[in-house]
């Protein structure tokens, strides 16, 4: 027998038992496992995952790994292409931040107080960001090359749009996840939501936002290299040209340059991130 309680708790407080499974982890896990099984069965594997005729070229390709082309003339070309790739990545990520930050702020819904503005606003801007990143940078590149021709602007826009979609979405999440107590205090001293954003949300979110932007900058280096495949220059274009001529030694020099570049940016960005979060 339970003793009668003197609590003021109202009877509505008892949980709705039906809702728990669907909101719980069990359901989510089941859904993810089902999705994985479905994806594996729906791929057409053919008879063997590797094409047998390709094995010869694969052997040649890997033999070239130990004797990359290190002639001064070619190294000059590599450095020039690497520089171009970095320049695309830097310009692309800067434009992505410029686009992603305002869109992220709007998609976070933090500026609106009334739900009648907030809910459709969040949905609309999240959809826009989703659409921007749903299309891969290569597709954007084909599109911009078709529209403006083989110009650096095509590569930069192609990079910036999906990256703005990714950055904006993460910025929105970071802005939403900021601890609420300092914001509450700012509101209590009469600050409007935009002042709360300037004085509370952004300063608190900045280290995480910067850190994530640097992480994305690493990815942008790889994307900028890939951009080369559509013909706008940089490491990717050189890799494609050398591959077409079956100059595997040149391909390896270029690959090593790309790896070195990514590692360098990785070192630099992890240093910056450590500095930011300490």
């Amino acid at each position: 027998m339970r003793p009668s309680s003197a609590s003021t708790t109202s009877p509505q407080a008892s949980r709705n038992p039906r809702g728990d499974f669907f909101r719980g982890r069990g359901f989510l896990t089941l859904l993810l496992v089902a999705a994985l099984l479905w994806s594996l069965t729906s791929l057409s594997w053919g008879s063997s995952p590797v094409h047998p005729g390709g094995l010869g070229s694969i052997g040649q390709f890997f033999q070239a790994a130990i004797r990359p082309d290190l002639s001064a003339e070619f190294l000059g070309l590599v450095v020039g292409s690497a520089w171009k790739t970095v320049a695309y990545a830097v310009a692309g990520i800067c434009l992505a931040v410029g686009l992603g930050l305002p869109l992220g702020i709007l998609a976070s819904g933090v500026l609106a107080r009334s739900p009648r503005v907030k809910v459709p606003g969040i949905a609309g801007f999240r959809f826009l960001l989703g659409a921007m990143r749903a299309v891969h940078e290569l597709i954007w590149a084909w599109f911009f090359v078709a529209a403006v021709g083989l110009s650096p602007a095509a590569a930069i826009f192609a990079l910036a749009i999906p990256y703005a979609g990714i950055l904006g979405r993460i910025y929105a999440d970071i802005l939403n996840d900021v601890p609420d107590e300092p914001l509450r205090a700012l509101r209590a001293s009469g600050a409007s939501e935009i002042k709360v954003l300037l004085y509370g949300r952004l300063p608190m979110a900045l280290p995480d936002m910067l850190s994530y932007t640097f992480y994305r900058f690493e990815c942008a280096i790889r994307s900028a290299a890939i951009m080369g495949f559509v013909g706008v220059g940089g490491l990717g274009m050189q890799i494609q040209l050398s591959l077409a001529d079956l100059y595997f030694d040149e391909v390896w020099t270029l690959l090593y340059a790309l790896v070195a570049l990514v590692l360098l940016v990785d070192l630099w960005s992890s240093w910056v991130r450590r500095y930011l979060t300490s």
């Binding site: 107590e181 300092p182 002042k195 280290p207």
Partner: peptide
């Protein structure tokens, strides 16, 4: 606790009292 903006300097947290 927790109701100052930890990332800002002291002067900014004091100025915050005037935001309204």
């Amino acid at each position: 606790q927790l109701d100052l903006v930890p990332h800002l300097s002291v002067k900014h947290n004091v100025q915050a009292g005037r935001l309204g």
